[in-house]
Design a protein around this nucleic acid. Sequence first.
RNA 1: GCCGACUUAGCUCAGUGGUAGAGCACUCGCUUCACACGCGAUAGGCCACAAGUUCGAACCUUGUAGUCGGCACCA
Length: 947
Amino acid sequence: MEIAKAYDPKEAEEHHYARWEASGCFAPEINENPDAEKFSIVIPPPNVTGTLHMGHALQHTLMDVLTRWKRMQGYKTLFLVGVDHAGISTQLMVTRQLKKDEHKAPQDIGREAFTEKVWEWKNKYGDVITRQIRKEGLSVDWTRERFTMEESLSTAVREVFVRLYEEGWIYRGTRIVNWCPKDKTVLSDLEVKEEKAKDGKLYYLTYPVKGTAEKLTVATTRPETMLGDTAVAVNPGDERYKHLIGKTILLPLTSREIPIIVDDYVESEFGTGAVKITPAHDPNDWEIGQRHNLEMLVVMNDDATMNEAAGPEFNGLDRYAAREKVIEEFEKLGLLEKIEDYDVTLPHCERCKTVIEPLLSEQWFAKMDEMRDQALKLLREENSPRFFPEVPHKKVYSMWLENLRDWTISRQLWWGHQIPAWYDKDGNIFVAHSKEEASAKAGTGDLIQDQDVLDTWFSSALWPFSTMGWGGSEPGAIATGFLDDEQKNPVAIAPGFDKTNDLQTFYPTDVLVTGRDIIRLWVSRMVMTGLKFTGEKPFDDVIIHGTVLDKNGQRMSKTKNNGIDPLEVFAKFGVDATRMTLAGSATGIDFAWRDEKVESYRNFANKIWNATRFCLMNSEGAKVDLQSLSRMSVPPAVAGGLSEPPATFSLADRWIISRLNKTAKAVDHALKTYQFHEAVQLLYHFFWDDFCDWYIEFVKDEIVGNADILVSENEIADKDVRVPVARARILTILEQAIRMLHPFMPFLTEELWQKLPGTSSLLHNAAYRSAEKTIMLADFPKCNEAMIDEAAESEMNAVIELITKVRNIRAEMNIKSGDKFTVHIAADRTFQQVFKANEPQILKLAKAEKLVISGKMDVPKASAKAVTANAEIAVPLEGLIDFDMERARLSAQIEKLDIELQRLHGQLSNANFVGKAPAEKVSELRDRHTEIEQQIKTLRINFYALI
RNA sequence: GCCGACUUAGCUCAGUGGUAGAGCACUCGCUUCACACGCGAUAGGCCACAAGUUCGAACCUUGUAGUCGGCACCA
């Protein structure tokens, strides 16, 4: 069979995904083994407004590698996919569109019509990210796709809210909150980003003390808030102000009189030692206000303009205009002491970058204390979740939990889960699962539901179990199942999908893969709610991946416009090459994006393609056959025709099979410890260096059918029998390698595997025997310890070293490629045998025409020389050799070895080393010392022979 | 202010208490019948700096410098 000369990823990417999906390979139901262990992962749901970026691609690749690997091992695998409704982002997006299309604001059309619009938008544009996920090749179960706003998940949200409320963990209260004046909503601390202000100023305002000629100076970065001052505070121990305590201030620009109070919060050394107190506009001031029973005077509206309480002159002014005006007025009054430049960091809205205004506001809060304590207990007692890498994430996680504050969970938006609380005419609150239930509680149907929605992260926090049908049953009980809102989000249910079983089967999940920025926003909250509502931790392991940076090591951002679009990279180099690049960078470490890196994996993909091409071109009469890798690989009929059981394995065969098994073992270990890059390196090295560069070259003549094959000395095998055996063997080794590569390079490997003769569902893991043939379900290769052959590895290494040294002579002596020569080899009996047995390969790969193998070197002076660990090599080059050049070559080799010899000598003559180092180490170094000494000796003899 | 990470070949990065590795780039040579997205052969590093622990440190400890993060505070 012949295939194209180069790999074209596009074709494979187009064909296989749809087929996999259609044949149910992604759904756990494909697994026929009733006793199969499960493996489950939930995707961190991307925003419905999102488009794929490199961070997703990295995260998704790691999850898919794990899932495909486990699936091939016969685990009942669920990789659950879904999308987040992304409250603010989505509302902003639809608001913008509404303005553009209909020149309307949400308020113009009302809540119901607006949310209807959002659903329309979602149904029309909300699948961008999921289509992109398909392109990535993710083996997610689309039959279980979830959306945080669908009915079943909303049920879970309401259940959690009601329970927490009833237990007293959720309350409504008036606090200073982070207010975004542009989005006009409250934000949690985690949605606020501190950023340095460009030209921060500190304003010193002077306040006259009533009944004296004295004045008191306070400093502030937000002068406009002085309109809401209700006290000035000093430290109780501050001698400067002692006599003023209890007196009052005549607050300029207002007609108000405010007290001078003492509070330990004030540091005498800082600023002027006197602090203006604005309880309604600053969190610290609010606390002081609580302690001293101060008036809370709100002087701003929700759009950060000043309100009536700020006085008629300021009413309606924007906060910055008001700031200017306050300064002007103070200046006029001679009360502005000074303005200093001041480094100040200001809170910004994560979404719209507007400066946050701390504001007194009535909101819903969740007290996390009980859940926090459970999470901390889990961490301390069971070290769960385990973070990979553990440093520094474990600490970030635990420190945040330890200092956890109440969570502001309400948002002044329309898009999201509306808070299940109803108010009667008197303002009494009834929290319930539905209006009916609330009415029953209230004894009246005349109720109005709370207008706010919940923080997007509230529903995300329930993701691992709400997606699996959790409906509010008691911890540990079987899920009650869920209902889907069919009008809005119809979900196809796979045949055999038992709605009530998912939670029981797949929860808790095995591993979570996510970025470090949401450890607190999301990971911690999943742990807390998971423990409380299911009685179990939602996952054991948390892999925190690194950040993909641009090629200059900068973070990718829209403002810098330095983002790299994964889809463009897919188009240029293929999905598989991109996945290899992402999986090939060390877990948890940031790395700069380089197209060159992808290019090298693109080349690797092509290498795999061409190695397969070669095997297919020479596959007649053979097929993939696992028996061909075991010792008794010759069919009985043939074996019967020979007098002895045949030694069918050449050195190269034993070697590559040993390497294959070692690689399987190492890959398994690497993946178990989430060292994805380690697995990538192992597979790359095995395939390219071991399999292509050496094995294929060694057996090429044999499988092409050019070579006579020696069975034993003087006995040449029957080609008709031997060639197919050799072909089956190379096909099988290739097939095993491709299987191991599949989790990383799903498209290429499927494309090739389908073409290999002899592949069928019989090669599937036992759990998938009746499924349609696909490499996705092939059994993942396991190490067979019996096939690890150290003798073969060391003998093969001797042959490789020999060939390399001869090639080196050829290159350094400038011998034309067409010129053939004789190679003399001196070695001990064992290695004489080894070299003899591999003579045809050595001749071919070293481009020599004759080998002279003996126990002692005897060649003309005009020879190029080299030594290996096991042999002395000479190539007679009468007339071609330049003695000066050869001497230089030899002395360079001697010099190199001598440096090592000196170091070894130094160590071995150190009594401390010999006395204290492990005996094994000492003898290892002694052997090495002897070996190098011998090599140097040989090289020296050769060197002096040339003088 | 507190905490953390990083500093290894020209570049991007692996790595280990005892011979320093890869990919790309560079140099030289190959139209070798799977692959020039290839083959072969070189070259290139006192593993940031200093001190300590150790028989032995690039690896462990401490300090210094640079780079980058996170958190807190901000009258």
